[in-house]
Amino acid sequence: MTRKTDNIYASALTEMVDFRFDERVADVFPDMIQRSVPGYATLIAGIGILADKYAIEKTHCYDLGCSLGAVTLSMRQRIKAAHCRIIAIDNSAAMIERAERIVKADNSRVPVSLRQEDICHSPITNASVVVMNFTLQFVPVDQRNALIAKVYAGLEPGGVLIVSEKLTFDDADSAAWFIDSHLDFKRANGYSDMEISQKRSALEHVLIPETESAHHARFAQAGFQRSLRWFQCFNFASFIAFK
């Protein structure tokens, strides 16, 4: 399948609207994510390896905010524990529709259930691995604690939560360096300054990043024994929290 080029913000917009995971975004999402998130392919592969390490026989593995199912496929192709099921959830109809086609074309043995739901209301049960890959940052801040607490309650002992997020920084110099480096990354991948600026405006009220310390504090508050940052590339990081 030919990857379509992300040119959503390539022309000057007369009206700026908030970013949405609609048909336009779903159509170019593979190109958008590869050109916008440094280290994305390595991160996805790593999540598959971690899922295989912590998946428990006869449990569920969740991909919350699954978009087109990259994490779902990575887990599906790696997990060896018997009788596991992957439950992939996204609130975007466009994403789920495409994810269904992508998963159907994959012949791995682990069964997958795809659901169009709001993850804040989805039950989490009998889970050994839960992944939120650049998902929590789109959840309203005042709902994040409850969501992580719900995930913790639904995990079996020995289960893990993997959360990948864009980070912000308390130190102004560090924040400026990471922002500039990420801008350089996007320019190197062919985005113009106008595209970068327009997309930043569209995301301003939709994607709310937090500091690393805020994430660790939330994991601890929910009851997780410990949490680690296992991956970082520029201002994008992934954490694993252990029940």
Rank of each mutant, 00 (worst) to 15 (best):
C84K: 04
N107V: 07
N107F: 05
S92P: 05
I89V: 15
L114K: 02
S92K: 04
I89M: 10
S108C: 11
E97V: 13
R109I: 08
V110Q: 03
H83R: 06
V103T: 05
R115I: 12
A82Y: 02
L114E: 01
D118I: 11
Q116R: 15
H83Q: 08
A99G: 07
S113T: 10
S113N: 02
I87P: 09
Q116H: 02
I96G: 00
R109Y: 11
D106L: 12
E97C: 13
C120T: 15
N107Q: 08
R101I: 04
A93D: 12
N91A: 08
P111T: 13
D118P: 11
A99W: 08
E117F: 13
R101W: 06
A88R: 04
R101Q: 14
A105K: 09
A94C: 12
A82F: 07
I119F: 13
P111N: 03
I89R: 06
L114W: 04
A105N: 13
D118G: 11
A88G: 04
L114T: 02
E100N: 14
P111C: 11
D118S: 13
K104F: 10
Q116L: 09
K104N: 10
V112Q: 01
A82L: 07
S113V: 06
S92Y: 03
S108Q: 05
A99P: 09
D90H: 01
E117N: 15
I119N: 09
I89G: 08
S108K: 10
A93N: 03
R109L: 12
R98W: 03
S108V: 05
R98I: 10
R115E: 01
I96D: 00
I89C: 15
V103W: 03
V112C: 04
I87T: 14
P111Q: 11
S92R: 01
E97G: 13
R115F: 07
E117Y: 15
D106M: 05
D118C: 13
V110I: 15
A93P: 11
R101E: 11
A88Q: 01
S113Y: 00
A93M: 10
E117D: 14
S113F: 00
I102R: 15
S92H: 01
A105Q: 12
C84S: 02
V103H: 04
D106A: 15
A99S: 12
A94Y: 06
I119L: 15
K104Y: 09
I102T: 11
D106H: 07
A88S: 15
A105S: 14
S108I: 08
A93Y: 10
N107D: 14
V112F: 02
I89H: 09
A88C: 07
R109H: 10
D106I: 08
A94T: 03
I119W: 06
E100D: 13
A82G: 05
A82E: 13
A94I: 06
K104P: 00
A105E: 12
R109P: 05
I119P: 14
N107Y: 04
S108P: 08
I87F: 10
D106V: 04
I119H: 07
R98H: 06
V103C: 12
V110C: 13
I119S: 13
I96P: 00
L114Q: 01
S92D: 00
R98L: 14
Q116T: 07
R101P: 01
C84W: 03
I86N: 00
